[in-house]
């Protein structure tokens, strides 16, 4: 009964938040510890821990699935989870013995650019909701090309506008894809 209640809580948006905070609570101290020890497998260990954590959470949740019929809905996820746990154990042993390839070395400036781009993608997603698809895509293309050192000002504008025109003609006009209009422009224009 208690497991059922825990599972009901975890299988909710709030539960997902708690699970993610808990994962961060494990990963951040572990990362700091591995960095202090100068482990060549920092990232790989963090990935393995995430996989094991995800598997255990999914395993726990699978016990809450109502049993309907001869084979419950939890049987197959448990099979796959068992496989992930076994593979993770094998990989952990190999890492412990130093048989795995060490983490790739990347300069911090290169990693920073990837993170910047991931942030830009998230911003793009938010901007689609706010400004609508076409204006958001226009700004995304301008900033995206500029970030990657494309400096030609006319090229920036022509390429962005040309691409937007292509998307508009093919997807919006021809295929009738109902792209989001955003909330800001309809609000401002009444």
């Amino acid at each position: 009964m208690t497991i059922q209640r825990i599972n009901t809580f975890l299988d909710s948006p709030l539960g997902l938040g708690v699970l993610l905070v808990f994962l961060a609570g494990i990963e951040i101290p572990l990362y700091l510890f591995l960095r202090r020890k100068e482990s060549p497998y920092k990232s790989q260990i963090l990935i393995l821990v995430s996989l094991v954590y995800l598997s255990l959470v999914f395993l726990l949740l699978s016990f809450a699935f109502p049993v309907k019929g001869k084979v419950s809905a939890g049987v197959t996820p448990r099979l796959w989870i068992l496989g992930i746990l076994l593979c993770s154990l094998y990989l952990a042993i190999r890492i412990n013995k130093g048989k795995e390839k060490s983490d790739p070395s990347v300069s911090s400036s290169q990693s920073r650019m990837v993170f910047l781009y991931i942030l830009l993608c998230l911003g793009y997603l938010g901007a689609i909701d706010l400004l609508g698809f076409f204006p958001a895509s226009f700004f995304f293309l301008l900033i995206g090309m500029r970030l990657l050192s494309y400096t030609h000002p006319v090229g920036l504008i022509v390429l962005s506008l040309g691409w937007i025109a292509f998307l508009y003609l093919v997807f919006y006009s021809l295929l009738s894809v109902p792209f989001p209009e955003g909330i800001l422009i309809p609000y401002l224009l009444g």
Partner: peptide, 24 residues
């Protein structure tokens, strides 16, 4: 196995039970 596990997310095609949907 991760791909197979991701595939179990959603309404179970046989029993109709919700799996790993986190209320979304």
């Amino acid at each position: 196995l991760l791909g197979l596990l991701i595939n179990t997310i959603g309404i179970d095609p046989i029993s109709g039970v919700k799996r790993y949907t986190f209320g979304e």
